[in-house]
Design a protein around this nucleic acid. Sequence first.
DNA 1: CTGTTTATTTGATCTGGCGCAAAGAAACCG
DNA 2: CGGTTTCTTTGCGCCAGATCAAATAAACAG
Lengths: 239, 239
Amino acid sequence: MTPDTAFLASISLFHGLPPQALAAALAAAREARYEEDSFLFYQDDPADRVFALVSGRVKLTQLSGDGQQVIMRVITPGLLFAAIGIVAGATYPVSAEAAEESGALIWTQAAMRALIEQYPRLALNALAVMGVQVREFQDRYRELATERVERRLARAILRLASQAGRKTDEGVLLDLPITRQDLAEMSGTTLYTVSRILTQWEGQGLVHATRERIVITFPHGLVSIAEDLPQRARPNAVE
Amino acid sequence: MTPDTAFLASISLFHGLPPQALAAALAAAREARYEEDSFLFYQDDPADRVFALVSGRVKLTQLSGDGQQVIMRVITPGLLFAAIGIVAGATYPVSAEAAEESGALIWTQAAMRALIEQYPRLALNALAVMGVQVREFQDRYRELATERVERRLARAILRLASQAGRKTDEGVLLDLPITRQDLAEMSGTTLYTVSRILTQWEGQGLVHATRERIVITFPHGLVSIAEDLPQRARPNAVE
DNA sequence: CTGTTTATTTGATCTGGCGCAAAGAAACCG
DNA sequence: CGGTTTCTTTGCGCCAGATCAAATAAACAG
């Protein structure tokens, strides 16, 4: 499970870099393990490190003044996060919590800046990574401002499926433990509403949801809801 | 009104750069004028230029599939926007529309990349600019997911005041024409609700709102609402 | 196996704020 | 200046979805 340069090459931050750059990056990183429910860093901590997940799952959450929590992203292996740690003087806008036993590569800000100095391409890659994030949050912001809960939930689940979906004979399993509360925090609603919508989808044969486990049995149906296409029920579904 | 290097130095992208870098940047830019209601670029256009506003006002808006519009940012002179244009292969996530007659400096992607090559510090500055944006949208996303309309509207108005507020003897004037519809699109609600809340605030002596014009007569009251402090009405307000 | 904790469902109730309609009111234009 | 356009207000009905309460149900600890 010790990461190699091939692993690094799969991380968007390192795309297009020469082998010796990958080797240097690997040498500059340190690896750390985190047990379930432990925190990698907290919101408002000085952002002085950059992370890449090697194994496990990490949730990035933001807390409001009155204690309400929102899940910003779920990190799966191969993803870079806390990229803001490259920038001097910043603080983390979210907290990072291991949803299960996890391993991560860590670069200090100094190490990352030294790498950038040597391989300026890294800075452009980092800009691209940030750009994707700006876009994603603008999109999600608009969704939240203009769209119904059902559609937002469909999108949240499809997003999860795209990064942690595993094909089984029953359908696409979301390969991470996820509660109704988590889904609510990802789509800006309440666990009650999530529960009701899932029950309804279950009746339409779109998903099979049990405790902390979601299987998408008819992905096209969810896509229809997310995109607002007309027909929704699964063909042959028992109504 | 022709911008000089002093103007460039005030733009966050160019912070800490040596004078000759500013001169080079100025030489690499071209200036353009836009009349009211004209578009600088459209959402989903290839992002191949970076802009800095010299004069006027520009609205960055995002349109959803079914035609609903959201205002992402209001750009005032001295602000950099469309920074995503530095990154190869991206598209603009928003449209940019001149809210009044405006002037902007424009760098092509090629020009900007050449500058970065020469002054790598630029890349780190660009990262910082993007980082601020990621944070801002994450914050606003959470607000939208967890907070009431009244508070979101208070925040939207205070945000506008911080970048386009002008002190008058009546209070802080939002120095740009802004409709109820605009405010609704900035805070994720409808123009009806905005109108009602403003009327209510007017009664509490917090603001003075007329056609396309907002004066904050008791800023502390708005802050109280934005931060959820207890007392709200203006002392001596006529109820 | 049993008690406890954590997650889920479901009914009942309530309400913030949306959407419509219609009537001002201010700006704009020929 | 008179007609038109644009912006704003306000009453009214309504409903998506939040909130509350309580009953399962699944996992877990000892």
